[in-house]
Write a protein that binds this DNA or RNA. Sequence first.
RNA 1: GAGCCUGUAGCUCAACGGCAGAGCGCUACACUGUGGCUGUAGAUGUUGAGGGUUCGAAACCCUUCAGGCUCCCCA
Length: 427
Amino acid sequence: MASKIQTVKGTREFYPEEMALRNYIYGKAGAAARSFGYQEWDGPFIETIDLYAAKSGEELVKKQSFTFADRSGDLVTLRPELTPSLARMIAAKQGELTFPVRWWSFGPFWRYEQPQKGRSREFFQWNVDMLGVDSPEADAELIAIGVTFMRSVGLTPELASVYVNNRRLMDSEFDALDIPQEKRLEVSNMVDRRSKMEPAKWDTYVLDAGISQTQLGGLKAVLGNFDLWKKSDELVRLFTALEALGVKEYVKFDPNIMRGLLYYTGTVFEAFETSGSVRRAILGGGRYDNLLADVGGQPLPAVGFAMGDVVTGIILQEKGLLPEFIPSPAPVLVTVFDESLLRESFALAAELRNAGLKVLCYPEPVKLQKQFKFADKMKARIVLTLGPDEAAKGQVSVKNLVNGEQVLVKRDEVAEWIRKILAGVAS
RNA sequence: GAGCCUGUAGCUCAACGGCAGAGCGCUACACUGUGGCUGUAGAUGUUGAGGGUUCGAAACCCUUCAGGCUCCCCA
C-alpha cells in the first residue's frame, strides 16, 4: 500500500459514532439556548487577521492562529474565536437591531496549540451572548443557560459547578491592597494559576513579582474569603436572580476566578467538573462592556460565554452520562433474493419509504446469510425477504430480529406490520 | 517554545538482542431461503517512517512523524 497521508495535527475525524456525540452536544446546547429565546447565528470561518490584531493579544495572533496568505497575498485567519466577528456584525447593524440581542452559535474554531487532553487544534464551540443590557440579572440569565445545558446532559450540582467572581470587586480589593495598576495583569494571571501550584511555591512566585509580604497576606485573605461577594452589590443581585431562575445550587462564588483581563469588565464565570479529573473549564464567560466601542461601534454592554465540545465530551464520557448512541441507520432491511427479484426488492423498499419508514435495501444479490448478518451488524430490527415463493403469492416474509419470529404478510400490509413490531419492541 | 512517556495484525496488547504471537474482530465451511450462539479451518504484518550499531534489531543509538502527560498559553 502506498504511504498513508496523515491527518493535519490536532484535527479530528468524525466517524458516525463521534458524529453522534457532536450532534448530541449540539442538540442539547441549542435546546438550552432556544428555551431562553436565543436565536442561532454564525459568522465566517475565515477572517482577516486585522479583526483579531485589533484587540486580541500578541500571543494569540502571532503564535496561536492559523494564518496564511491567500492567492492574492492577503493574510487570512481561520477564526480562533467568535466574539470579534460578533462585535463587527452587531456594530454593522447597530441601528436596526432590536436590543437586547440574544444570539447563540455552534461551529468550528482553530487554534495552533499543542494538542493534549481536552485540547485540539480544531474544535467546536458553543457561544451564547446577550448584548444591550448592563445588569447582573442579564449575567444570571447567561449562567442559567449554561446550567440548563449541564442539567440536560446529566451533570448534577454534585458533578459540576459554576464558579463566579466579579472583576470590579477584585479591582476594589486590589485598590485596598495598594497593588499598582501595572502589576494587576500579572497578579491576575498568578491568581488564575494558584489552584495549580503548591501553596509555598505560589507565595515565593508572588513575592518575586514585587508584591510585598503584607500585600501577599492581604491577597491570600481576599482569595480565601468566600463571603467577599456580599460586598458587591452586583454579585448580591446576581445571586438573587440565580435563585429566582432556579439554578443557584450550581453556582458558587470563588474569588480565585479571574479569566484574564482581555475583555472582561464585571462578572466572570467558569464551570468545572468537581472531581477535577479534567482540569480544564467546561465553559467560561463574563461581561465585556467595552468591546463594541473598541471595535468602532457605539458603546454597548454585553455578556456571554463559550463552551468547547472537547472537554464536554470527555467529561460526559468519563461520568458515563452519554446515552447509548444507536448507530442503526434504519430499523428495516430489505434483502435481495436474486438477480431476477432485485427490482422487486428495490420497489418494495421504495413503497415503504413512501409510507414514511427508514429502510435499508441490500444493493446486490448475495447469499441471504450474508444479508442477515449485515442486518444484524446494522442493528436493524426487521428483515424483509421477497423470494420466489413470496412473489408468487404477493407476500413478503417479515422477520423480527429481536425475537426471531417470522411471518408471511400481504405486500400491501407490510408497512402496517412493521409499525406494529416497532411499536411493540421496547426502546 | 521546553521536558518526560508511547507507536507491533482492523482493535487491545505480548514478545525486550536470536523463527513476530495471543485474545477480540475478519473470511470460509458446518447451515447452497435466514442474523445473534456454537464448532472447525484460514488470512492477518515493510514492528509509524528514515538512517546507524551488530553475525543477527520490534528491542540498542540518532533523526523524523504522530499520539499521550506536564510546563507555557488559554481569546
